[in-house]
């Protein structure tokens, strides 16, 4: 939901944080080596026979998650990927792999590893779509001894388009436009000036939101617009998973914000992924431009604390 330009400073805070650690699901073994050599068409005799070594380029294969999913991934790396997902960068492609081999791997070697998030690039536009490059560095050990390093770069991106007709477009559909009428025009005029205006009853001084022609307390039709400070807290929220709406990319959080002035309004939360929104979380008003034009008030949550 965020303006993707806004998310980079937050993405950057993940640099240097651990991405994962763990143990290869299988020790180095001759059947996996044979399958690899069959697939690659590699007839190198060093990889076969009674005392084979593993092809060095298999290094990453020993630590792949496989079908049973990630096991050693840190919460930080999961958060980084979720942030990218929530910025619309839902697709992933590997772009670079740099490996250094310190010793040959042989059947029986138990593989362990530690990964760190080395860098996150600013937003880049590529042929596939717009996104961020994420580089991780993994140190791999065999029976506890350093065996190699594996640096891997992926592009997390918003697909430019689905390839075939009939496939749902990932983006491009416009959001519903606000309905502006005589009763609420003052509110939208304030938004256009990046001011969040609320009504105060001239008769009883009660604040009200959303904008209405009369006071719900005393019935007076007289009111004055006052500007909210922009400070607030999350009073409640829901996470929308289904149904999807073309302009939005679920899951996303819809929050009820209690402003410092005491009135409540429904808005988006920016700055954190949907699963980090919490009741009571302090938030600050900010304005984002969507669909290339419409300005909207949303509320930014503080960036998570970074532990190094």
């Amino acid at each position: 939901m965020d303006d993707p330009e806004d998310v980079y400073p937050l993405l950057k805070t993940y640099e240097g944080r651990p991405a994962g650690s763990g143990r290869g699901k299988d020790p180095v073994n001759a059947p996996m080596i044979r399958h690899w050599c069959e697939a690659m068409g590699d007839a190198n005799p060093a990889y076969a026979g009674a005392d084979p070594v593993a092809p060095p380029t298999m290094l990453q294969a020993w630590i792949m998650d496989g079908l049973s999913g990630p096991t050693g991934r840190t919460a930080a790396y999961g958060e980084l990927l979720a942030l990218l997902d929530s910025a619309g960068c839902t697709a992933v492609v590997a772009t670079d792999c740099e490996q250094e081999y310190l010793r040959p791997l042989r059947p029986g070697n138990v593989i362990t590893f530690d990964s760190v998030i080395e860098s996150v690039s600013p937003r880049k536009t590529t042929r596939l779509g717009t996104g961020h490059f994420v580089t991780t560095r993994t140190d791999i050990r065999a029976d506890g001894e350093p065996a190699g390093t594996h640096r891997f770069r992926i592009l997390k991106y918003a697909p430019a388009k689905a390839f075939a007709k009939g496939v749902r477009e990932e983006s491009g559909a416009a959001r519903p436009r606000p309905v502006v009428n005589r009763d609420n025009a003052g509110f939208w005029e304030g938004v256009a000036e990046r001011r969040l205006l609320i009504q105060r009853c001239d008769a009883c001084a009660a604040l009200r939101f959303p904008w209405l022609p009369g006071c719900g307390g005393c019935g007076s039709p007289e009111w004055t617009a006052v500007e909210a400070s922009g400070a607030g807290t999350v009073f409640s929220y829901v996470v929308v998973h289904h149904p999807p709406f073309p302009a939005f990319d679920p899951p996303y959080a819809v929050a009820l914000i209690e402003l410092a002035e005491g009135i409540r309004m429904i808005s988006n939360i920016s700055g954190v992924p949907h699963d980090r929104v919490r009741i009571g979380m302090p938030v600050e008003l900010e304005f984002v431009r969507v669909d290339g034009g419409q300005l909207l008030p949303v509320f930014r949550a503080p960036a998570p604390q970074v532990a190094r």
Partner: peptide
Amino acid sequence: ILTTNGLVGRFVT
């Protein structure tokens, strides 16, 4: 990418 990596290694060896 792992297959491409494997092929590059095979090509050289």
